[in-house]
């Protein structure tokens, strides 16, 4: 008993008091900035990206495809830099594309959020996670959102075991062909109205697996996606802030 109390005492305070303003330790490649007015060989830059995330005319990075490897910034430091801004979630897919010269915070478009989401889930959102070809890292980060550091439970956000108890699905992975039907089963089992959140590059765009005949992305064609959370894997802070943004709970 004494031993347990001692251990308990040794832990100190571990939770992050303000998940909106805290800073990620060390290096973090968050929202990128492409500097205008610096000319580089755009074709070479585009060619270098392993994820096909860079486009030209105008020069842009698609956060839904980017793996945040940082290679573009290493090769062209005067042109591309990554800020430590982890708030990268958006409810509109096109808004994940960062164009040359843009350097504003990414904020959820409140007008595009379905009214019932904020009304019904604003103070309590229960989520069921489905991994469909996820490599395990996004899944671990989603698990971490519930640990003593990030502690999303304090915001009324929880992961639950059954889709029947859930208000929505968080999907990870590029949607492997072998999981496509099971994902749909889980999605259908969630009572209406429901949300769908795509967590991580693979879920948003398929990542490097996009063209693989072993994935079936078409299952997403007819489903409304409510939130896109970039990252490879998605950082817990990107998750928390994205969901709080969707629910209209951000302070800033």
């Amino acid at each position: 008993m004494f031993e347990s109390l001692k251990i308990w005492l040794h832990q100190g305070k571990q939770y992050i008091p303000d998940v909106e303003t805290t800073e990620v330790p060390g290096i973090f490649r968050g929202r990128p900035v492409i500097k205008a007015g610096v000319s580089v060989d755009e074709k070479a830059l585009q060619e270098l990206c392993p994820m096909n995330a860079i486009d030209v005319n105008p020069l842009s990075i698609d956060l839904g495809k980017c793996s945040f490897c940082g290679e573009c910034a290493f090769a062209y430091p005067e042109k591309i830099s990554f800020t430590k801004d982890f708030k990268m979630g958006h409810n509109i897919r096109e808004r994940l594309i960062i164009k040359e010269g843009e350097d504003q915070p990414i904020r959820i478009d409140a007008d595009a959020v379905r009214k019932e989401i904020r009304r019904l889930f604003g103070r309590s959102l229960k989520l069921r996670q489905v991994s469909a070809g996820g490599d395990g890292s996004c899944e671990m980060e989603l698990n971490a959102t519930g640990n003593v550091n990030f502690d999303v439970g304090r915001f009324g956000i929880d992961f639950v075991a059954s889709p029947r108890h859930a208000d929505g699905i968080v999907l990870t992975g590029p949607v492997s062909e072998n999981m496509a039907d099971s994902f749909l089963d889980a999605y259908d089992a969630v009572p209406d109205p429901k949300v769908l959140i795509l967590a991580g590059t693979d879920a948003i765009s398929g990542g490097l697996f996009a063209g693989s005949p072993a994935v079936r992305r078409s299952v997403l064609d007819d489903i409304k996606v409510d939130l896109y959370l970039p990252g490879n894997p998605v950082h817990p802070l990107t998750f928390v802030n994205g969901v709080l943004g969707l629910l209209g709970r951000m302070k800033s």
Partner: peptide, 11 residues
């Protein structure tokens, strides 16, 4: 097993 198959060796 097999649910997670993504065809990574071919990729």
């Amino acid at each position: 097993l097999g649910w997670q198959h993504r065809g990574i060796e071919n990729l």
